[in-house]
Design a protein around this nucleic acid. Structure first.
Lengths: 230, 230
DNA sequence: CGGCATCCGGGAAGATACTG
DNA sequence: CAGTATCTTCCCGGATGCCG
């Protein structure tokens, strides 16, 4: 072991902190590091394993993800479970308090999306697109509508339900959905947010739809983008 | 000019970005850098000059503040004004869209404050304490109450008004307030959030109060701290 | 494969000094 | 007062490799 290593043992790591009683400053100490909020986003719909997280966070490196998970665990935002053998893997899950920052995350996204910088054609994770439905849902446009929609992105599937002007999203296959989409998150985003015609996306093989096509059109209107700010 | 400088001119600065269509990721590109949200916080009650910002952000260095202001200006969150001569100074002000992230900032703080890590005895800026009143205000506890409160922290003064279960805060001296506090933000925090007795704070010379003392006691109950998460 | 440690290069943050 | 210039330190990102 080198000498510097020994001296490192003596100094407390002393994570960079704002040391401010303000709640915002504390929040930034807890979840303000690069990637931290995106890790939380990826866990919004339930526990994930290390490489599932990586898949939803293109560009993060393994060591940084490890550090973030350690930091979020220390902050009591994330909890780590060991799956029983023979799976011998770990899963990461938001704590109850961690789940409570979902409204915050949605509100930040809703604010930012009004920036002229926003480019909805960029890649998007499966969690992002499903979370965006909760963020952008307009209850007024769903008056009297009740439906269930299934989504399949590769091996992942989600269920979205709308009833009484409320929306719910969860992981897993829908049982007898009114609509079902199979494709990429980007294709679904192009349909709902980009105004791409369904026919074009189907023709390119980006998206496959089962269900009433008029209902698809209706569905795509339920998530209006707010106006750009200026 | 050194050779490295010349080569720097050739490479695009290429700010680190998430390049993700998710609104949250965009938000973090815009205001996710260290100190950025705290700069926004400091501007919530109106324009400030460079050194006024520094005063509310203990620990920030001048060059980092310069960079943040440049970044926030590029993101259209902050606007820079040149005051007319002879003042010849600049002020920084949130854009209309920038002001719209106040609810987001308050919500983040409200979430974070439930962390066991929270320490309300740490130093706090004048903006933080005044913003915290808007964040923590409980309309139910202010039923039937209508009052105006003045605050003076050194050269800065604020006015807080409560009426019809709503709260308003602005910069400037209150005209004929029901209560008036003179002292430090920390002393006010100790009274309202720390449960410190008014007498102790007055005896130590931390806080001077004008107005009905029973009303001070009532005022201090209007901002309940949420329970710690676990 | 999943998770973590290590090393390295570049760049952002922090501290201090300095200038118009 | 309002920033720049410079230097150091630390964090991030990528690559590699270890270990279960």
């Amino acid at each position: 072991m080198k000498l510097e290593k020994l001296t490192e043992l003596h100094k407390v790591p002393q994570k960079r902190q704002y040391r401010d009683a303000c709640g915002l400053a504390l929040a930034l100490d807890l979840i303000g590091e690069r990637w931290a909020m995106l890790v939380i986003r990826e866990l919004i719909f339930g526990p994930k394993r290390f490489n599932e997280l990586r898949a939803g966070l293109p560009g993060i490196s393994a060591n940084v993800l490890t550090q973030r998970l350690e930091g979020l665990e220390a902050a009591a935002v994330v909890r780590r479970h060991r799956l029983p053998p023979p799976a011998s893997a770990q899963v990461y899950e938001l704590t109850e308090w961690g789940y409570e920052c979902e409204p915050v995350i949605r509100m930040i996204g809703r604010w930012a999306i009004r920036s002229p910088e926003h480019d909805s054609s960029l890649p998007v994770s499966t969690t992002s697109i499903m979370l965006s439905f909760k963020t952008m849902f307009d209850p007024a446009r769903a008056m009297g509508l009740s439906l269930s929609v299934g989504f399949r992105f590769g091996a992942e599937s989600f269920t979205l339900g709308i009833a009484d002007g409320a929306i719910a999203v969860s992981r897993g296959d829908a049982t007898a959905p009114d609509l079902h989409f199979t494709g990429t998150p980007e294709a679904v985003a192009a349909l709902v947010y980009g105004g791409e015609p369904l026919e074009a996306l189907e023709a390119e093989g980006m998206l496959a739809v089962e269900g009433d096509r008029a209902l698809v059109a209706r569905f795509a209107t339920l998530f209006p983008m707010p106006e750009k700010h200026a």
